[in-house]
């Protein structure tokens, strides 16, 4: 049975092109020393990765608990049902990210090359 028609390949090519473009936009220019960037609806925080610490980030539902150790980042606990971010494992490289959608907390390792990121680290 022949399923594929010409338009299917066009659709597939278009979808892959969008994936490629977003990938270049996302991972193209990561440089500088890696830092931990955390955002919630309460604010934005930057942490260096070379000091081990425990961080409590206030979110929509409560505190998301994040551990920095051995240059890696773990979400230790979060007040959500699915615990996807807790089970996501350790973030280690620039571009690694995880998020607790119910608690509206976004966690990523990013290059600190951009001055913008450093300027609004405290609220």
């Amino acid at each position: 049975m022949k399923i594929f028609r010409p338009g299917d390949w066009v659709a597939l090519a278009a979808a892959l092109l969008v994936v490629a473009l977003t990938a270049v936009a996302a991972y193209g220019g990561a440089s500088g020393e890696a830092v931990l960037l955390i955002e919630s609806d309460q604010g934005r925080w930057l942490y260096p990765l070379d000091v081990d610490r425990e961080i409590f980030i206030p979110g929509l539902l409560g505190d998301t608990v994040i551990h920095i150790h051995d240059h890696g980042v773990d979400v230790h606990d979060s007040p959500c049902r699915d615990k996807i971010c807790v089970n996501a494992g350790t973030l280690e490289h620039p571009g690694d990210w995880t998020a607790c959608l119910p608690n509206r907390v976004f966690i990523q390792i990013t290059g600190s090359g951009e001055e913008e990121a450093l300027d609004d680290q405290s609220f």
Partner: peptide
């Protein structure tokens, strides 16, 4: 464009 697309292409564009 039903003549040029099977449900595969339609599904891809829908998901996109």
């Amino acid at each position: 464009g039903g003549r040029y697309f099977s449900l595969v292409g339609i599904s891809i564009l829908g998901a996109l």
